[in-house]
Protein backbone atom coordinates (compact mmCIF):
# COMPACT_ATOMS: atom_id res chain seq x y z
CA UNK A 1 0.00 0.00 0.00
CA UNK A 2 1.67 3.26 -1.05
CA UNK A 3 2.15 5.46 1.93
CA UNK A 4 1.07 9.12 1.71
CA UNK A 5 3.73 10.73 -0.47
CA UNK A 6 5.99 12.57 1.91
CA UNK A 7 7.29 15.42 -0.22
CA UNK A 8 10.03 16.01 2.26
CA UNK A 9 11.57 12.79 1.06
CA UNK A 10 13.71 13.54 -2.02
CA UNK A 11 12.58 10.50 -3.98
CA UNK A 12 8.90 11.43 -3.57
CA UNK A 13 9.75 15.02 -4.43
CA UNK A 14 11.29 13.88 -7.73
CA UNK A 15 8.02 12.18 -8.62
CA UNK A 16 6.15 15.37 -7.66
CA UNK A 17 8.35 17.41 -9.99
CA UNK A 18 7.81 14.97 -12.86
CA UNK A 19 4.04 15.43 -12.43
CA UNK A 20 3.78 19.12 -11.52
CA UNK A 21 6.48 20.76 -13.65
CA UNK A 22 4.67 20.40 -16.99
CA UNK A 23 1.45 21.73 -15.43
CA UNK A 24 3.00 24.85 -13.95
CA UNK A 25 4.99 25.37 -17.13
CA UNK A 26 1.82 25.53 -19.22
CA UNK A 27 0.17 27.85 -16.69
CA UNK A 28 3.20 30.10 -16.89
CA UNK A 29 3.00 30.15 -20.69
CA UNK A 30 -0.69 31.00 -20.65
CA UNK A 31 -0.21 33.79 -18.12
CA UNK A 32 2.67 35.24 -20.09
CA UNK A 33 0.55 35.11 -23.24
CA UNK A 34 -2.27 37.06 -21.67
CA UNK A 35 0.01 39.37 -19.75
CA UNK A 36 2.12 40.34 -22.74
CA UNK A 37 -0.96 40.84 -24.88
CA UNK A 38 -2.46 43.17 -22.31
CA UNK A 39 0.79 44.92 -21.55
CA UNK A 40 1.89 45.59 -25.09
CA UNK A 41 -1.26 45.80 -27.17
CA UNK A 42 -4.32 46.30 -25.10
CA UNK A 43 -3.34 49.05 -22.62
CA UNK A 44 -3.08 52.79 -23.28
CA UNK A 45 0.27 54.62 -23.10
CA UNK A 46 0.68 56.78 -20.03
CA UNK A 47 -0.32 60.41 -20.61
CA UNK A 48 2.99 61.60 -19.12
CA UNK A 49 5.56 58.89 -19.84
CA UNK A 50 4.09 57.67 -23.10
CA UNK A 51 5.14 54.20 -24.21
CA UNK A 52 7.91 53.75 -21.66
CA UNK A 53 5.30 52.99 -19.02
CA UNK A 54 5.07 49.52 -20.62
CA UNK A 55 8.44 48.80 -19.01
CA UNK A 56 6.59 49.00 -15.67
CA UNK A 57 4.93 45.66 -16.54
CA UNK A 58 8.40 44.08 -16.34
CA UNK A 59 9.97 46.24 -13.68
CA UNK A 60 7.33 45.98 -10.97
CA UNK A 61 6.82 42.17 -11.24
CA UNK A 62 10.57 41.53 -11.16
CA UNK A 63 10.93 43.80 -8.12
CA UNK A 64 8.13 41.83 -6.48
CA UNK A 65 9.85 38.55 -7.45
CA UNK A 66 13.17 39.77 -5.99
CA UNK A 67 11.47 40.14 -2.63
CA UNK A 68 9.29 37.01 -2.98
CA UNK A 69 12.27 34.77 -3.77
CA UNK A 70 14.15 36.17 -0.79
CA UNK A 71 11.19 35.30 1.43
CA UNK A 72 11.13 31.76 -0.04
CA UNK A 73 14.89 31.49 0.54
CA UNK A 74 14.57 32.73 4.11
CA UNK A 75 11.82 30.22 4.94
CA UNK A 76 13.95 27.46 3.39
CA UNK A 77 16.82 28.75 5.53
CA UNK A 78 14.63 28.30 8.60
CA UNK A 79 13.83 24.79 7.34
CA UNK A 80 17.54 24.07 7.11
CA UNK A 81 18.44 25.39 10.53
CA UNK A 82 15.38 24.13 12.43
CA UNK A 83 14.62 20.78 10.79
CA UNK A 84 18.03 20.20 9.09
CA UNK A 85 16.26 18.70 6.12
CA UNK A 86 18.28 18.20 2.89
CA UNK A 87 15.26 19.23 0.82
CA UNK A 88 15.26 22.61 2.60
CA UNK A 89 18.96 22.94 1.75
CA UNK A 90 18.22 22.23 -1.91
CA UNK A 91 15.27 24.64 -1.90
CA UNK A 92 17.45 27.37 -0.47
CA UNK A 93 20.34 26.82 -2.86
CA UNK A 94 18.07 26.55 -5.90
CA UNK A 95 16.36 29.85 -5.11
CA UNK A 96 19.48 32.04 -4.87
CA UNK A 97 20.45 32.27 -8.57
CA UNK A 98 16.80 32.71 -9.62
CA UNK A 99 16.39 35.53 -7.11
CA UNK A 100 19.57 37.19 -8.34
CA UNK A 101 18.35 36.94 -11.95
CA UNK A 102 15.01 38.57 -11.13
CA UNK A 103 16.77 41.32 -9.15
CA UNK A 104 19.15 41.94 -12.04
CA UNK A 105 16.17 42.14 -14.42
CA UNK A 106 14.53 44.62 -12.06
CA UNK A 107 17.63 46.83 -12.03
CA UNK A 108 18.07 46.77 -15.80
CA UNK A 109 14.41 47.50 -16.55
CA UNK A 110 14.47 50.25 -13.90
CA UNK A 111 17.49 51.81 -15.56
CA UNK A 112 15.86 51.57 -19.01
CA UNK A 113 12.64 53.01 -17.67
CA UNK A 114 14.38 55.98 -16.05
CA UNK A 115 16.87 56.71 -18.83
CA UNK A 116 14.56 58.97 -20.92
CA UNK A 117 13.92 61.21 -17.97
CA UNK A 118 17.23 61.12 -16.10
CA UNK A 119 19.45 61.34 -19.16
CA UNK A 120 21.82 58.77 -17.55
CA UNK A 121 21.59 55.04 -17.14
CA UNK A 122 21.62 55.11 -13.36
CA UNK A 123 20.36 57.39 -10.64
CA UNK A 124 20.71 56.62 -6.95
CA UNK A 125 16.97 56.71 -6.53
CA UNK A 126 15.82 55.37 -3.16
CA UNK A 127 13.92 52.33 -4.38
CA UNK A 128 16.35 51.38 -7.12
CA UNK A 129 19.23 51.65 -4.65
CA UNK A 130 17.51 49.36 -2.15
CA UNK A 131 17.00 46.78 -4.90
CA UNK A 132 20.67 47.21 -5.82
CA UNK A 133 21.75 46.42 -2.24
CA UNK A 134 19.44 43.39 -2.31
CA UNK A 135 21.28 42.34 -5.49
CA UNK A 136 24.63 42.60 -3.66
CA UNK A 137 23.24 40.40 -0.89
CA UNK A 138 22.10 37.81 -3.45
CA UNK A 139 25.59 37.80 -5.03
CA UNK A 140 27.12 37.36 -1.59
CA UNK A 141 24.87 34.37 -0.93
CA UNK A 142 25.76 32.75 -4.28
CA UNK A 143 29.45 33.36 -3.61
CA UNK A 144 29.12 31.77 -0.16
CA UNK A 145 27.46 28.71 -1.71
CA UNK A 146 30.37 28.35 -4.13
CA UNK A 147 33.12 28.48 -1.56
CA UNK A 148 32.05 25.76 0.89
CA UNK A 149 32.43 22.22 -0.42
CA UNK A 150 30.41 20.20 2.07
CA UNK A 151 26.75 20.73 1.07
CA UNK A 152 25.37 20.20 4.58
CA UNK A 153 27.68 22.71 6.21
CA UNK A 154 27.26 25.16 3.34
CA UNK A 155 23.49 25.04 3.67
CA UNK A 156 23.59 25.81 7.38
CA UNK A 157 26.09 28.68 7.03
CA UNK A 158 24.22 30.22 4.10
CA UNK A 159 20.97 29.84 6.03
CA UNK A 160 22.40 31.92 8.87
CA UNK A 161 23.59 34.60 6.47
CA UNK A 162 20.25 34.61 4.61
CA UNK A 163 18.33 35.17 7.85
CA UNK A 164 20.76 37.87 8.96
CA UNK A 165 20.21 39.47 5.55
CA UNK A 166 16.45 39.21 5.93
CA UNK A 167 16.60 41.11 9.21
CA UNK A 168 18.81 43.79 7.68
CA UNK A 169 16.76 44.43 4.52
CA UNK A 170 14.12 46.64 6.19
CA UNK A 171 16.86 48.53 7.99
CA UNK A 172 18.69 49.04 4.70
CA UNK A 173 15.45 50.12 3.04
CA UNK A 174 14.80 52.73 5.73
CA UNK A 175 18.32 54.09 5.81
CA UNK A 176 18.55 54.29 1.99
CA UNK A 177 15.28 56.21 1.86
CA UNK A 178 16.53 58.58 4.54
CA UNK A 179 19.90 58.86 2.76
CA UNK A 180 18.06 59.73 -0.43
CA UNK A 181 15.97 62.47 1.11
CA UNK A 182 18.98 63.76 3.08
CA UNK A 183 20.88 64.49 -0.11
CA UNK A 184 17.79 65.73 -1.99
CA UNK A 185 19.04 64.50 -5.35
CA UNK A 186 18.31 66.53 -8.44
CA UNK A 187 15.67 64.34 -9.98
CA UNK A 188 13.08 62.75 -7.70
CA UNK A 189 11.68 60.01 -9.87
CA UNK A 190 8.33 58.56 -8.97
CA UNK A 191 8.39 54.85 -9.86
CA UNK A 192 4.97 54.26 -11.36
CA UNK A 193 3.16 56.70 -9.04
CA UNK A 194 0.72 55.73 -6.26
CA UNK A 195 -2.44 55.37 -8.30
CA UNK A 196 -2.45 53.25 -11.46
CA UNK A 197 -5.29 53.44 -13.92
CA UNK A 198 -7.45 50.30 -13.92
CA UNK A 199 -6.53 49.55 -17.49
CA UNK A 200 -2.90 49.33 -16.41
CA UNK A 201 -3.66 47.21 -13.37
CA UNK A 202 -4.72 44.08 -15.26
CA UNK A 203 -1.55 43.63 -17.29
CA UNK A 204 0.42 44.18 -14.11
CA UNK A 205 -1.51 41.47 -12.26
CA UNK A 206 -1.17 38.96 -15.07
CA UNK A 207 2.53 39.66 -15.54
CA UNK A 208 3.16 39.33 -11.82
CA UNK A 209 1.41 35.95 -11.69
CA UNK A 210 3.26 34.89 -14.82
CA UNK A 211 6.59 35.72 -13.16
CA UNK A 212 5.54 33.93 -9.99
CA UNK A 213 4.60 30.73 -11.80
CA UNK A 214 7.78 30.95 -13.85
CA UNK A 215 9.71 31.00 -10.62
CA UNK A 216 7.73 28.09 -9.15
CA UNK A 217 8.44 25.96 -12.20
CA UNK A 218 12.12 26.81 -12.42
CA UNK A 219 12.52 26.47 -8.68
CA UNK A 220 11.11 22.91 -8.73
CA UNK A 221 13.44 21.96 -11.57
CA UNK A 222 16.39 23.60 -9.83
CA UNK A 223 15.66 21.76 -6.58
CA UNK A 224 15.65 18.52 -8.53
CA UNK A 225 19.05 19.48 -9.94
CA UNK A 226 20.39 20.04 -6.44
CA UNK A 227 19.07 16.64 -5.29
CA UNK A 228 20.81 14.96 -8.22
CA UNK A 229 24.02 16.95 -7.56
CA UNK A 230 24.04 15.73 -3.97
CA UNK A 231 23.42 12.17 -5.06
CA UNK A 232 26.34 12.36 -7.50
CA UNK A 233 28.59 13.65 -4.72
CA UNK A 234 27.53 10.82 -2.41
CA UNK A 235 27.90 8.18 -5.11
CA UNK A 236 31.37 9.49 -5.95
CA UNK A 237 32.44 9.22 -2.34
CA UNK A 238 30.92 5.76 -2.10
CA UNK A 239 32.80 4.78 -5.26
CA UNK A 240 36.03 6.05 -3.71
CA UNK A 241 35.55 4.29 -0.37
CA UNK A 242 34.26 1.13 -2.04
CA UNK A 243 37.34 0.74 -4.21
CA UNK A 244 39.43 1.54 -1.12
CA UNK A 245 37.83 -1.39 0.63
CA UNK A 246 38.38 -3.42 -2.50
CA UNK A 247 34.72 -4.53 -2.72
CA UNK A 248 32.68 -3.52 -5.75
CA UNK A 249 30.00 -0.99 -4.75
CA UNK A 250 27.01 -3.29 -5.27
CA UNK A 251 25.41 -2.79 -1.87
CA UNK A 252 22.00 -1.14 -1.89
CA UNK A 253 22.06 2.51 -0.97
CA UNK A 254 19.13 3.86 1.04
CA UNK A 255 17.17 6.32 -1.15
CA UNK A 256 17.60 9.05 1.48
Amino acid sequence: MRTMPNYANPADFLRLVRAAAPVTATITAILFGIGLYLALLDSPPDYQQGETVRIMYLHVPSAWMAMFVYVVMSSAALGTLVWRHPLADATQKAAAPLGAAFTFLCLVTGSLWGKPEWGTWWVWDARLTSVFVLFLIYLGIIALWQVIEDPGKAARLVAVFTLVGAVNIPIIKFSVDWWNTLHQSASVFRMGGPTIAMSMLWPLIFMTFAFTFLFLTLHMLAIRNEILRRRIRRLSMLAASASEAGIPAIFAEPAQ
Binding site: E149, R233, S236, A240, S241, S243, E244
Partner: peptide, 15 residues
Protein backbone atom coordinates in the same frame (compact mmCIF):
# COMPACT_ATOMS: atom_id res chain seq x y z
CA UNK B 1 42.64 3.47 -11.46
CA UNK B 2 39.05 3.23 -10.15
CA UNK B 3 39.22 6.63 -8.45
CA UNK B 4 41.39 8.42 -11.02
CA UNK B 5 38.64 10.86 -12.04
CA UNK B 6 37.23 11.55 -8.58
CA UNK B 7 38.13 14.80 -6.83
CA UNK B 8 41.00 14.25 -4.41
CA UNK B 9 38.79 15.61 -1.62
CA UNK B 10 36.73 12.42 -1.77
CA UNK B 11 39.71 10.10 -1.38
CA UNK B 12 40.58 8.42 1.90
CA UNK B 13 43.88 9.16 3.68
CA UNK B 14 45.37 5.96 2.30
CA UNK B 15 44.30 6.77 -1.25
Amino acid sequence: AAVADLPAAYLSAGQ
